[in-house]
């Protein structure tokens, strides 16, 4: 589907507000067109280090074919990419490299953290492994799995497309606070919990809620119970 076709309204509902003259004229905002363009032509940069990178290859190879989602132009240069796939374990030695490369990507940019290693350190809770890349860079979509299936990655790309459409973009590392307060990079759960408790107390003194408390959606209560009514 070419842009011209779309703009001519070939695939557009002619009764939709903003579509005029039977589909020959569309009024929209530049912003919407730009987002539509970005969404359909993502240039991913694979930051692949480990096993997940092999599964990433499967995603781009003939069978799963990421090209179907408009994201096949893999760029190994961060300056030409707008989506970074962090695929694989990131160890402390690699961390500054990852940060540098992230910083080199032009805005707007998105990050997919592929697999449990990139998301949380995975089952390597040890002396040289970063416990999740969100200690240092913002992450838009986390994909669980060790490695995640290619289908899950396709879903992640579609999530990114949705975020682009909505104009959302992660701006700061979500785990950054962990770095500062817990004797940088502590792994031991008890140690970390103690550090968090201290942090919570300090925030409470300032009248702030504890970090990481999510306001969960309240599910609407079902008024008439079909099963027991």
């Amino acid at each position: 589907m070419g842009l011209l076709d779309l703009l001519k309204g070939k695939y557009v509902d002619p009764t939709y507000p903003g579509v005029h003259a039977g589909g020959d004229i569309i009024t929209t905002t530049v912003d919407a067109v730009v987002k539509w363009g970005r969404r359909s032509s993502i240039w991913p940069m694979p930051f692949g280090t480990a096993c997940c990178a092999i599964e990433f290859m499967a995603l781009t190879a003939s069978h799963y074919d990421l090209a179907r989602f408009g994201a096949e132009v893999l760029r190994f240069s961060p300056r030409q990419a707008d989506l970074m796939f962090v695929a694989g374990t990131i160890v402390d030695k690699e961390a500054p490299v990852l940060k540098t490369i992230y910083d080199q990507m032009p805005d707007p940019k998105w990050v997919i953290s592929m697999g449990v290693c990139a998301s949380s350190g995975g089952f390597y809770r040890s002396y040289h492994v970063m416990q999740g890349i969100d200690e240092i860079i913002p992450v838009d979509v986390y994909v669980p799995g060790c490695p995640p299936s290619p289908e899950a990655l396709v879903a992640a790309v579609m999530k990114i497309q949705e975020r682009i459409k909505n104009g959302e973009q992660a701006k700061s590392p979500q785990g950054a606070h962990r770095l500062g307060i817990s004797g940088e990079g502590a792994i031991d759960r008890r140690q970390r919990r103690a550090a968090w408790q201290q942090d919570d107390a300090a925030r409470a003194a300032e009248g702030l809620p504890p970090r990481g408390v999510l306001a969960l959606r309240v599910l609407p209560t079902e008024t008439d119970d079909h099963h027991h009514g």
Binding site: D92, P96, S126, Y127, H128, L179, E184, G185, I187, D188
Partner: peptide
């Protein structure tokens, strides 16, 4: 030296610049 038996498994050190 992390593989020594008296080195804790999870004791990390953060590297700031390569």
């Amino acid at each position: 030296h992390p593989m020594r038996k008296d080195y804790p498994v999870g004791q990390r050190h953060v590297l700031k610049s390569p």
